[in-house]
């Protein structure tokens, strides 16, 4: 293991960690806002998948990754209306609605994949390019790790502070947290609970779509049905393990990302351990994190409880 820790390899691992963390950060910050509004939305996995599919379709037909990103985000925002309708209007069990959405997403994807992708010439399209930030990228170690990434990665750095600021320092953030803690407190002041939850779901969904689209466009030009491979669930784990606090969630995400990065490099370097061990690490780690970090003090009190007046 010693050689793993040496210069270029270490930098490569850390850079991989940062890029692996990017889509997770997008999804997690979106899902955090959703959950803080009291919606136990477990459809992150499915939404990320839909984002990736839409991004692939648009990118392979138009060739423009940015347009693909935009359409994917819009599509996921639109899809979120299903979740909103089922949970806020019909007041169905939120877990069941999320599960249904996940199954729908994977089913539709499989059908689409078998119809359009499998057995055909893979389309050529350009994903996102690496953007080196002048000067900063020349700093040893930190430069290649943090400042030679895709443009969206830089955006993802800004996201946790922005979400924190939104939740704790703006009027709307206070209202969102209020909806998650005690929706009636807002309702008795005549402010719509459903509308705020709907918007929170939409935000979460479009950020998950963004994460999925980035996963597709950032580093690969091929689509596989298990592209998301549980990352949406890791996001939910990160939120619970991070006790619904933005920066702790970032911490949990970087643990997952680091494990995956190490796994990738272990395969390349060729360690005498079956590579499956490395692949499974993030999932084992997620159970360990949940068992270890049991503080739920910032869990929204009304999380998962449909709100109705009577």
């Amino acid at each position: 293991m010693l050689e793993l820790m040496q210069g270029p390899l270490l930098i490569s691992i850390l850079a991989a960690m940062v890029r692996i963390a990017t889509p997770l950060l997008f999804s997690a910050m979106g899902e955090l806002v959703t959950q803080r509004a009291g919606i136990w939305n477990i459809s992150v996995e499915g939404t990320m998948l839909l984002g990736a599919v839409v991004a692939y379709v648009v990118a392979s037909t138009t060739g423009s990754p940015w347009l693909a990103l935009l359409v994917a985000v819009l599509a996921c925002a639109l899809i979120s209306l299903i979740m909103s309708f089922v949970t806020i209007v019909l007041k169905a069990e939120q877990f069941v609605a999320g599960l249904a959405l996940n199954l729908l997403a994977s089913g539709l994807t499989l059908f689409w994949f078998q119809t359009y992708v499998i057995g055909r010439e893979p389309p050529k399209f350009a994903g996102f390019e690496q953007v080196d930030i002048p000067f900063l990228s020349d700093i040893p170690i930190l430069g290649p790790v943090l400042f030679s990434q895709r443009a969206l990665t830089y955006v993802s750095f800004l996201l946790p502070p922005l979400v924190w600021f939104f939740l704790y320092r703006t009027r709307y953030g206070l209202e969102v947290r209020c909806v998650g803690e005690n929706p009636k407190a807002l309702d008795v002041k005549g402010l719509g609970v459903g509308r705020r939850q709907c918007l929170a779901i939409m935000f979460g969904s479009l950020m998950s779509g963004l994460g999925g689209a980035f996963l597709m466009l950032g580093y690969s030009d091929r689509f596989v049905p298990d592209l998301i491979a549980g990352r949406g669930w890791l996001v939910v784990v990160a939120i619970i393990a991070g006790n619904w606090m933005p920066f702790r969630i970032v911490g949990a995400i970087f643990i997952f990302a680091l494990l995956e990065a190490v796994g990738i490099h272990a395969q390349v370097v060729g360690v005498a351990i079956p590579h499956h061990v490395f692949l499974v690490l993030p999932y084992v780690a997620s159970l360990a994190l949940l068992a270890g970090l049991r503080s739920r003090t910032h869990q929204p009190v009304a999380l998962g409880i449909p709100y109705s007046r009577e």
Binding site: T170, R171, Y172, L174, C178, L186
Partner: peptide, 10 residues
């Protein structure tokens, strides 16, 4: 919370 204040910030 929810008071009819204006502006984005608290």
């Amino acid at each position: 919370v929810g008071s009819a204040g204006t502006g984005l910030f608290l």
